[in-house]
Amino acid sequence: MGFLDSEFTDGNIVVAKAEDLLNWARLSSLWQVSFGLACCAIEMMATSASHYDFDRFGVIPRPSPRQADIIIISGTVTLKMATRIKRLYEQMPDPKYIISMGSCSNCGGPYWEHGYHVLKGVDRVIPVDVYVPGCPPRPEALLEGLLKLQEKIRNESMIKKSA
């Protein structure tokens, strides 16, 4: 039940909990850091293009991490790149969310066994909120991952720390 249902009939007054309002504002305009590493980045670009528009969910690309809310790690994370990802993560202001897109950043992907330079999962350096599986995931799968993240934000609470 959204807060628009509790509108009074005689005017322009809407009553809602402050938490719901803040969460709604946050999930409707998640600005992402344009950060693509490998093949999944091409599917991310295709998601932001006109066929599977990302913009209708409020997601626009920002070049700098200091102006962004989410970072979509799309592609293989190598040991050389992992230290730079950690630095980018620390530059983002709170509240920040991370979507790990594709097999390679979930768990190392096809390179899990013999890759000497591949980090087996980006959650070894930064905490991840949503994992999107696939190699590469279809644009519809990435949009579903975004919707799941929006679900998670909708149920967040300022008082209770979420797990």
Partner: peptide
């Protein structure tokens, strides 16, 4: 030198675990 036939993987690199 990684592509040599007798190369062995290190366990950690700068605090990150290298094998799976």
């Amino acid at each position: 030198y990684p592509l040599r036939k007798d190369y062995e993987n290190p366990e950690f690199y700068q605090g990150m675990k290298v094998p799976y």
